[in-house]
Structure formats: structure tokens, C-alpha cells
């Protein structure tokens, strides 16, 4: 038998046991040639179920531990602000980066604007002189 098929049958059989039903005979009837290999393992899984059944903690313990945890969580949140997660850090870095980019863009625009104005003033003040020189010439 393909070992992977047997892996799958056993896994699913335990899932079915978990929901309180038992279909070992059906599993075995689907794979009659492999009954000898599968049957003892299915039987063992069925025997294991009650021994490994979930166990619930006592309500008193559950309640007491919750109270202790909530007290610890409250004092922890008072003691220190929560550190930012990686995702939050990325968002913050992206926001700062964007702000710096926008400010840099404004600075360049402002610089260009001033430079253009200075050049314009220079050109206006230099214009008539050169013209005069030409006239004089």
C-alpha cells in the first residue's frame, strides 16, 4: 500500500474519532487488501482516544489565574507604553520620509523661485545699461 495513503487514512480516522464517531469498518472495507496492516493501528487509535481525551481545568483555578493575569497585564500597560510593532515602525518611517520629501521639494521650489527672481532683477537692472552702452556705441 502507498504509505501516504495509509498516513492519510489514519489521520482522518483520528479526526472522525475526535467527533465521537467510529468508521473503522468502513475504512477497512474500502481497503480490504490492507486490512491486516491498518486494522491494528485503527484499533489502537480507538483505544487511545479515551486515555488522551481533553481535560478541563478547575473553574477555581481558571478564575484565579485570569485575575492574576489581568492584574499583571494592567500593571504592565501602566508601566510602559507598548513598543510599536514592525508594521507600525514601517508606517512611521514612511510618513517621516514622505514629509521630508515634500519639505525638500518645497525647498527646491523656493530656491528656484528666489533664484529666478534674482536673475530677473539682475537682468532688468543690467538691461538698460547694456542698452545705453550700445546706444553710446
Amino acid at each position: 500500500m502507498n504509505r501516504r495513503v495509509a498516513d492519510e487514512i489514519l489521520w482522518r480516522y483520528v479526526d472522525i474519532l475526535h467527533y465521537g464517531s467510529d468508521n473503522a469498518e468502513r475504512c477497512l472495507s474500502l481497503f480490504p487488501k490492507h486490512r491486516d496492516q491498518l486494522e491494528p493501528l485503527l484499533h489502537l487509535a480507538k483505544r487511545l482516544g479515551p486515555s488522551l481525551a481533553p481535560v478541563r481545568p478547575s473553574p477555581a483555578f481558571a478564575r484565579r489565574l485570569k485575575e492574576e493575569l489581568l492584574v499583571a497585564a494592567a500593571s504592565r500597560s501602566r508601566a510602559a507604553p507598548p513598543p510599536a510593532s514592525h508594521q507600525e515602525l514601517w508606517w512611521r518611517a514612511a510618513a517621516v520620509g514622505s514629509a521630508v520629501s515634500v519639505m525638500a521639494a518645497f525647498a527646491v521650489m523656493w530656491h528656484n523661485h528666489n533664484h529666478t527672481q534674482e536673475a530677473g532683477v539682475g537682468a532688468r537692472s543690467a538691461g538698460p545699461r547694456s542698452g545705453g552702452q550700445q546706444h553710446a556705441a
Binding site: R4, D7, E8, L10, W11, V14, L41, L44
Partner: peptide, 8 residues
């Protein structure tokens, strides 16, 4: 799943 099989 293979480990469960080997375990049983």
C-alpha cells in the same frame, strides 16, 4: 501525518 503513522 507520516509521523502519526510511525508513532502508532
Amino acid at each position: 501525518k507520516a509521523l502519526l503513522h510511525r508513532t502508532l
